[in-house]
Nucleic acid binder design. Structure first.
Lengths: 221, 221
DNA sequence: TGCGCAATCATGCAAGCGTATAATTTCTGC
DNA sequence: GCAGAAATTATACGCTTGCATGATTGCGCA
């Protein structure tokens, strides 16, 4: 007659934390930020709602951890595409640009998720720190690639100019990312990548056409 | 002994609707999206909470109306700055760029507000329609200015190219807008405008330096 | 002036929220 | 194989939420 509890197995702390973070992100992305309630998150993670408070001091802490996780994933995907290996600096830059404008980085849910977080950046110092770090990391990576490409072309840029180049190119990527995510059907296949490469090339006065994107009109086979 | 009710005066419907919309935006911007509850909104508007349901079928309707209002204000501010009057096409374009990268368009709360809305764009068709219309309007305006500036320079662009130019320049503005709003202290005074003008100029292969922004190093008085 | 309608206010309700706590279960070390 | 600690479940609490309803009040129109 005793109502039986759900049986369970213990898991390492990291695993549980990750499960909760993934569940949070999935709910926010699929249904919207408001859907990420402690109950829904716990259910999605397959554990009881008490676990949230067991692994995070407060729900806000969990949200913060999820934000960091998401941004790390987003910049990581672009980073990886440029790769430490392979090709000229120009080609690496082109690959970086193309990666930033192609799935999985271009993704409506990823943007929705990002937007759902961003308002916290203005209010929570910890969130702000994550934002600042992520942004800087991405831009620095871009600046390094730009620097290398310009040096390769025999036109090394002084630091101040390199910084301005990086900010401008970063803006192009951010802007196209936004538009590509929010209105995917407004652009033809490969169009975003093409425009991104052209714009970055124009800003740097550097030819990137032949370099990276397999989806542009491409060269002769 | 009878507890006395709050006295009130009747107001035209439009006025009440506007008051509710303004209150919604103010709360979302200042405190965050979650703070815009029916009770808080009504209090801020100085009326009782029943009025929300009296003027809007549901809270979601109010949010939708507020979104439309906000976006109209944002694009309107940039539009106005370029102005129907005055100067060469090049100068108008430069003013447009500068306006998009200067307060009140560059504003942390405006961006936070925008982000708070954006996740609804993916789910609510009406919100999506507003987003699409706003985006298109802004980009078309930009494309017209670009078109005129290129014609003026004796290099008219075929439609397909003009479209690509508009998309790229729009991305620059969007990206710089984001970064300028989210990390205002990361840029020096006038730096955003300077970078924006330079980038747009590079993309269009057009000199905009002397044209528009009073905050760049500027000409002799 | 006074009637009637619609605008406005006040209050109530069920549901859902984040958090707290106590009861159970699993697992480790001896 | 057993004791104790830690992980996990289950449930309760106080609050807030969006929405509904009924009482009241201001105001145009005769």
């Amino acid at each position: 007659m005793t109502e039986t509890r759900k049986t369970f197995t213990r898991a390492p702390a990291g695993e549980r934390r990750e499960a909760l973070i993934r569940a949070t992100l999935a709910l926010m992305a699929e249904v919207g930020p408001a859907a990420a309630t402690v109950r829904a998150i716990a259910e999605r993670a397959g554990i009881s709602q008490g676990m949230i408070r067991h692994y995070f001091q407060t729900k806000e802490d969990l949200i913060g951890a999820a934000y960091e996780w998401h941004m790390r994933g987003l910049t990581g995907a672009t980073d990886a595409a440029a790769g430490p290996v392979g090709g000229s600096a120009r080609q690496q830059l082109a690959r970086f640009v193309a990666a930033a404008l192609t799935p999985p980085v271009i993704d409506a849910q990823a943007m929705s998720l990002w937007a759902g977080f961003i308002h916290m950046v203005l209010r929570d110092p910890r969130m702000r720190a994550v934002h600042e770090r992520t942004y800087r990391h991405f831009r620095d990576r871009l600046q390094d690639l730009i620097d290398a490409a310009l040096r390769e072309a025999g036109r090394p840029a002084p630091p101040a100019l390199a910084r301005r180049h990086a900010i401008a190119c970063n803006a192009v990527l951010d802007g196209l990312w936004l538009e590509g995510c929010a209105l995917p059907e407004a652009f033809g296949p490969g169009e975003l990548t093409g425009i991104g490469l052209t714009a970055v090339a124009a800003i740097l006065d550097l030819d990137l056409a032949a370099a990276g994107a397999p989806s542009t009109k491409a060269g002769t086979a």
